[in-house]
Nucleic acid binder design. Structure first.
Lengths: 336, 336
DNA sequence: TCGGCGTTTTGTAGCGCTACAATATTCTGT
DNA sequence: ACAGAATATTGTAGCGCTACAAAACGCCGA
């Protein structure tokens, strides 16, 4: 439809004519302002604004082989866990003159399709979550050489990575519960084909428990898609294993909140009857009563660093294999 | 960086050579498969896959003036209200061979920047939320003629719109409370520069109350950024107006949940002491106890219809001014 | 006044792809 | 076996922009 009336399409050419300069000067005005004399630049900018000129990114990208758009694949916006991550990315790219576009993908094959779109768009870089990807797209990404950063990944980056150790965090939060006197601690994990940032927690939990001389068999897996609903299921499942359960470690604050709501229904006091630990420090963690003790990953910083890694590489500096650990901290509230 | 080793870049040309056909046949294989003989197509597809060829969308877009990428601007992913909307969009475009990319924008100027990026990318269409946009970008959008659909908008579309009447919904939920015997009903609104899909509720609330012969002065405004925290503030504010408040209408389920948590802290029974109505039917509405009575907008359908409007226009049919009402329904739960 | 230098501006060519028209190939029916 | 239609494939040209090299301009001191 843009083509229907090509006489109306505002192109760099038409701006150039209107401003009485060559197209190259218009191009330079936008891409390398310092190469153009102040006076000329102002004139071009003014004319461009009057005409409503928007550079055709597709053409620029084609001609230069460069792009100032970065693509990020986000697993889900169902809960707020990626909110700060996205905000960090967005804020950072804005300061560098880049643009961020997002695609949502709940499954590996959706992720693959999203990556293909981004590659087709010839973006300057791609941010992914987690370290599990279809092998086809790995080959593809290798071949194109586009900078890729994996977030929430702590080791063995595909290209570059930024994250924290979920294993360390699991250990720290488990030890906190033990230290506070809880002994019959249950662990809730996700079942099915989930990211290693979840699966690697189970062995660490077991290890931490055993190191303290405690039983580590109270483990129950729930479906990641269940959201709050996973809470009641998990509680029921763990009580079937041990009715005298005294604490529970949840994979996210959403599940933890679900458990808390279920405790309410059962008339169980938290943390007296059952202590609850969450993960992610979602907004709800601080709003419900009692507040949730939870793991706070530095998601905002993660988003920022993810973008800076990509931008460095796009700008020529930076190297493959880069790894940034953004750490985490435990937020202690009343639930545990 | 893609250019560093141009001998390694897989282009349509290189696929054509490897498959022993002309570039046009490769192009047709991807864009108009029916124009290419089955046998030839299979061969080209096979070679393309082996070489890891991904069509350069930037080049295709430039040459054809068409794009199969649609951009959507989402106000926030902080809560789940847009989850189903995005899912509806994503599912629909997938069936039509389009791709959806997202940009987040919390403010009008961020929205404007997002729109500029999309226009620069020459997307096939743009989906926005709400009907308030910077006048500059309105001019720009008018000029480029790109199909634009506004969601959550019920009248006077800029180009096309899909939504439901928040005014009708306000009336229905207020009448429900009245019908159930509540008389001292308070209304929570958002203050500041918020979308008309929020502001238009206040007059309807007043009108509904007055029509029933009830007082309509119990109105309190909270900051949209406050999330759950807005609940306690709103409750406090409304109690200052009328300590005997018996029901409360919230702008979102998040605020309603915040109110509910605050009631828990105060030891108030819901709905005996205070009835609570939410908005949006977020996941949390069905998970907390008591469940929230709330307005369920058909967000998923809204997303689907938004995309179908754009795709129809991109495909040549469809007209400006189209409006789709996706309706809403009230989910009755225990809170009111 | 003029060569020489740095700054600013401008042709030229081509990025990878697709619309379109033209050509080549295959398939009808007689 | 062959005209004519239908189908399949292929040149040509150009989309809007930018890298690069070449040209034009302005300014200085001699």
């Amino acid at each position: 439809m843009t083509k229907l009336r090509s006489d109306e399409t505002v192109t760099m050419q038409s701006v150039a004519v209107a401003a009485g300069v060559s197209p190259m000067t218009v191009s330079n005005t936008f891409r390398y302002p310092e190469r153009v004399q102040e006076e000329t630049r102002q004139r071009v900018l003014k004319i461009a604004a009057e005409l409503g000129y928007i550079p055709n990114h597709a053409a620029g990208n084609l001609a230069s082989g460069q792009s100032r758009v970065i693509g990020a694949v986000i697993p889900s916006i169902k809960n707020s866990s990626f909110y700060n991550y996205v905000r960090g990315m967005q804020d950072h790219v804005a300061t560098e003159g880049y643009q961020l576009i997002l695609k949502l993908a709940d499954t590996l094959s959706q992720e693959a399709s999203a990556i293909r779109t981004f590659v087709g768009l010839r973006v300057a870089g791609i941010a992914l979550v987690g370290d599990e990807h279809e092998s086809d797209v790995k080959t593809l990404l290798r071949k194109t050489g586009v900078p890729v950063v994996e977030s929430w990944v702590h080791e063995n980056p595909f290209d570059m990575a930024v994250g924290y150790s979920t294993s360390d965090a699991t250990r720290v939060i488990t030890e906190l519960l033990i230290e506070r006197g809880y002994r019959r601690i249950g662990f809730v994990g996700y079942q099915g084909d989930v990211s290693s940032r979840f699966t690697e927690r189970v062995p660490t939990f077991k290890q931490s428990m055993e190191k303290a001389g405690l039983d580590s068999y109270r483990i129950f897996l729930v479906d990641q898609a269940d959201g709050f609903g996973a809470g009641p299921k998990a509680l029921e499942g763990l009580c079937a294993i041990d009715p005298d359960l005294d604490a529970i470690v949840c994979p996210t604050d959403i599940v933890a909140a679900g458990v808390l709501f279920e405790c309410g229904r059962r008339g169980w006091k938290v943390p007296e009857r059952l202590a609850i630990a969450g993960w992610g420090d979602y907004e709800i963690a601080s709003e419900i009563t009692p507040g949730l003790t939870t793991v706070q990953p530095h998601s905002y910083e993660m988003g920022q660093r993810a973008m800076s890694l990509i931008i460095e590489r796009a700008a020529g500096s930076g190297a493959t294999g880069m790894m940034v650990d953004t750490g985490f901290h435990i937020v202690k509230r009343a639930s545990a």
